[in-house]
């Protein structure tokens, strides 16, 4: 699903050169739930940005769903992000001037889908996070947990192959965070690959696979790869 080999990312200024990631190699199989931990400035966000095609890397290779993204232009990267990746941000990143329906609708509009196709998908996504009844509300009218659920619905509406979550519970209280984690686990159980960056060690320990980054490298890896095949998913649901 995601295969990074010797990825390096160097930020250069006139005075200083910063190695955000160095020879970073990681394979994530389809259906995995991987947490990424590490201290501030260790390269977690850089990894997430590169994995999500939000920024380019200095060297190495990266295959996303067997597509080599190294030479892709801005248009193709945008297309891949839209079709294969769902993003969940720490601050939810909802559009404050748009109601919940329009917020969840955003990725589908960029996919160029007709309104008649988008509507049922948006409503289904909102229903899956329990907020269909509030689709006309604005984000400011919701609690933090509800806003993050909307963000999850937005991430899921395009039926992406994997979700990238950047501290999705970072701005939530523990009870709400637990609810969001349960939702993510459900999504993962249905076959969606999830990579989640978190500071929360407790959440990381619950994760089947945890990658600990230090100074731009993988310092420690715990857990084992637990790919969920469609057959396994079907068995789990049964």
């Amino acid at each position: 699903m995601l295969k990074m080999t010797n990825i390096s990312k160097v930020f250069r200024t006139e005075l200083v050169e910063t190695h955000a990631l160095s020879d970073f190699t990681l394979n994530v199989e389809e259906g995995e739930f991987v947490t990424i931990t590490g201290p501030s400035g260790c390269g977690k966000t850089t990894f997430l940005n590169i994995a999500g095609l939000l920024e380019t890397y200095t060297s190495g290779s990266y295959l996303l769903d067997n597509v080599d993204v190294t030479e892709l232009g801005d248009f193709q990267r945008a297309r891949l992000r839209n079709e294969k990746i769902g993003f969940i941000f720490q601050s939810f990143n909802l559009m404050p001037d748009l109601n919940l329906f329009d917020n969840v609708d955003v990725p589908l509009r960029y996919r160029g889908m007709k309104a008649s196709e988008r509507r049922p998908r948006v409503e289904k996504a909102l229903e899956s996070v329990g907020l269909l009844g509030r689709k006309k509300h604005l984000p400011a009218q919701l609690s933090g947990g509800q806003q993050q659920r909307v963000a999850i619905a937005r991430a899921l509406v395009g039926e992406p192959r994997f979700l990238l979550a950047d501290e999705p519970t970072g701005n939530l209280d523990s009870n709400t965070a637990q609810g969001v984690m349960e939702l993510l686990n459900e999504i993962n159980a249905q076959g969606t690959t999830i990579i989640m960056v978190t500071h929360d060690q407790e959440l990381a320990q619950q994760s089947p696979r945890n990658i600990h980054i230090l100074d731009g490298r993988i310092a420690q890896e715990s857990g084992k790869r637990t790919p969920v095949t469609p057959a396994e998913t079907a068995a789990a649901v049964a």
Binding site: L54, F75, A78, N82, N93, Y110
Partner: peptide, 16 residues
């Protein structure tokens, strides 16, 4: 700015 970045992350191209 953050909204624009988010839109780009969600698949908006520069022309969009």
């Amino acid at each position: 700015r953050k909204q624009i970045g988010t839109r780009r992350a969600l698949g908006a191209t520069r022309p969009a």
